[in-house]
Design a protein around this nucleic acid. Sequence first.
DNA 1: TTTATATATAACAATATATGAATATAATGA
DNA 2: TCATTATATTCATATATTGTTATATATAAA
Lengths: 102, 102
Amino acid sequence: MTEKLLESQADIFKALAHPVRLQILQMLKPGERCVCELVVDTEKEQPNISRHLAILKKDGILGCRKDGTRVMYWVRDRRAFELLDLCREMLKSYYQEKSEFF
Amino acid sequence: MTEKLLESQADIFKALAHPVRLQILQMLKPGERCVCELVVDTEKEQPNISRHLAILKKDGILGCRKDGTRVMYWVRDRRAFELLDLCREMLKSYYQEKSEFF
DNA sequence: TTTATATATAACAATATATGAATATAATGA
DNA sequence: TCATTATATTCATATATTGTTATATATAAA
């Protein structure tokens, strides 16, 4: 039971553990976007973005719907953004401590 | 710059993306512990735990100090626990939605 | 129907991450 | 010094993840 919870938790963090996926989430903060917009903005290959989206969807972080030929993706639970913000805050302190950039 | 931030953020999430490492963090919630205690409580091999600890330390999540033959580890920034809690809350809603266990 | 556009999937190579077993190191105490 | 205990590291290997290219699917428009 606890083991199962730890694994689910790890899966969420695993889904967040890639710069492109974090970038995608950031771009979805104002609301849903279609794949093609994400491809343009990230400057990555379309299949690459599609797969990252599939990972985020599989772990329940994103939802999606079809709209004509397009597929719109959005963040299902806005607490995901809190996770990202909290992490950024931690990094900020960490780098200030080491008197590095930021 | 933003790219560097995204990568640092991803590194933090990557460090959290393993059930054993999450278990270790949970065990460090009350305060510092030595490696041998973590080995006993997790029921994992000692080299395995050492390596997971090294990963958490490399990414700035854990600190450590020697105490005789022992090495004590602790969580450097308690906001790490907030990350875990927030993640668990998200999972809770998610599973309730799907009317699964929890 | 044909064509164009948007998206997803498959196949592959490259890289990263995981584990267990064996070994190395470092501090302590006899 | 030698033996013991605690911890870290190395090696071999298995598995997972990533990016790229090519291809498949699905919708819409001509």
